[in-house]
Design a protein around this nucleic acid. Structure first.
Length: 114
DNA sequence: ATCCTGACTTGCT
DNA sequence: TAGCAAGCCAGGA
């Protein structure tokens, strides 16, 4: 399987362990273009993560300034409760409209094929 | 070892 | 539209 992040990836061929997996997750998030958003599930799928929770965990613990974590929301378009404020501001700065703490995914969802 | 919690999803009621 | 349960992974008590 090919990933547009930076090379080829084998989701099921080999056991993707923490570091590589975490790195892939961060890469995926880092590749989300400004003005678009993605979901934990989508990020997990693209990175080959077995669980969306892991994507959340990685962002919560291993993200740095180079990672636009604010472009990742939950499957229903709502940010996690404790960061709705900050995230909403950052998204607004990206040009993403957030109404009632919610993003219209049908409109802003990231299509890796762009 | 068990139970609980957390930047989650999906499916079924 | 809303609530609930089951899966899922990492960590802490």
């Amino acid at each position: 399987v090919t990933s547009k992040i930076g090379g080829t990836v084998a989701p099921e061929a080999e056991v993707p362990v923490d570091e590589d997996l975490a790195a892939r997750i961060l890469d995926v998030v880092a590749s989300i273009p400004r003005g678009s958003v993605s979901t934990y599930g989508q990020v997990a799928a693209l990175a080959g993560s077995p669980s969306p929770r892991l994507a959340g965990w990685v962002l919560a613990h291993l993200s740095d300034d180079a990672v636009p974590w604010h472009r990742v929301v939950r499957a229903n378009g709502t940010p996690a409760p404790h960061l709705v404020d900050e995230q909403s501001r950052r998204l607004a700065a990206d040009g993403v409209v957030v109404t009632d703490g919610r993003v219209n995914l049908r409109r802003y969802r990231w299509q890796p094929d762009d």
